[in-house]
Nucleic acid binder design. Structure first.
Lengths: 195, 195
DNA sequence: AAATGATTTAAACAGTTGTTTAAAAAATAA
DNA sequence: TTATTTTTTAAACAACTGTTTAAATCATTT
């Protein structure tokens, strides 16, 4: 009873190809082939390549922001828990979607126009809350630095994976272990930097 | 006496467009237009679009690796000086070439084939040296973590700039100040994490 | 000045691109 | 069943792609 609709087949194929090769390098005929579907059906169901792309991008954005967005601005969540949430949620998410940050960042750079409507709704209002929490505990670091450091230590290995692996710093087969072990260390590191 | 050769005009235009929009989205006619040069001259001087692209990529790679490569494996350079060199050199380099890391990382992901010959010559052999320096000073951190942390804290703001700015964490006009101030703090942070 | 080579040009080439069309097939409703 | 709508198909479309051609222009050498 597994009825995969034509729309789903197309979305899934488009997802694979767009995240792998980017917007411009992905051809509509490729998507149709990978989906095992007639070319004209892309336009029948989604109108245009650009529209199909936006569908994929919006979903990726939700994944990336939904993983931490609400948590950060919650006053009842302690600083430690926030940091732990970021590292835990993102390490888990990115292990399952290694291509996610590169795709988001690159397409955000290359296709700025296509993203405007999405990013305008994504403003994080967490800064004042975190600034307060830092002040209460007499930590002199800014919220921006704290968040960027936590995100950087967590996400950078995934973003720079091709660089890290090709330079021999971490071998491909060690990568999962490498980032998994970091997950536990990052909270300790971050706490040390605030003292 | 400023004779800019046709080759230079083409390379410069190609550099701009490739780093801005990636390989597939950049059209040869665009490059010719931006260079103010006849379309056929791209092939006359560089043979093909792919060849022209490789010229640009190799130069970018040299910039990114040349900035720290030799330093890291030098036993006479202390750990502190290595970290300081990474943050200083990269902050300076990336302030002048903000698009560099995204370009390298993305094209390394999307156009793996085009990079094989380049990356194979780029192996960093710094790990054993740094591991020794860490052991001598009774620091329990691994070389991989130390390098990834230092690179991450330094480069991540540039890599994730579109994300950081569009989320409102740091405003566009504050960005230069933000990364400049981080440059001095990163060494302190890194040292704290090793204690 | 004439001859030779390097550079530049406009035009054309063959293949690819995203999209549309009109007819066929399949699914649903009457 | 027949009628109607939805889905799928093969073919065509016009525009765009990277590249090549052959002639024109320019610079250099004899």
């Amino acid at each position: 009873m597994d009825k995969v609709t034509t729309e789903q087949k197309i979305i899934s194929a488009a997802d694979n190809l767009f995240t792998q090769k980017g917007y411009a390098a992905t051809k509509t005929r490729e998507i149709a082939d990978e989906a095992g579907v007639n070319l004209a059906l892309l336009n029948y169901y989604f109108g245009s390549k650009e529209n199909l792309y936006k569908k994929v991008v919006q979903e990726k954005f939700r994944m990336l922001l939904g993983a931490i967005g609400p948590l950060l601005s919650d006053e009842k969540v302690s600083l430690e828990d926030k940091i732990r949430s970021i590292t835990d949620n993102y390490t888990k998410l990115l292990l399952e979607n290694e291509e996610l940050p590169i795709f988001i960042i690159n397409e955000l750079t290359v296709n700025k126009e296509l993203f405007k409507d999405i990013t305008e709704n994504a403003r994080v209002v967490a800064q004042p809350v975190i600034d307060n929490q830092l002040k209460e505990r007499n930590i002199e670091m800014s919220a921006a630095d704290l968040i960027v450091n936590t995100l950087g230590l967590t996400m950078f290995p995934f973003v720079a994976k091709p660089l890290i692996v090709s330079s021999g710093l971490v071998k491909e087969e060690e990568f999962v272990g490498f980032v998994s072990e970091r997950r536990e260390k990052i909270l300790e590191w971050i706490i040390k930097t605030t003292k």
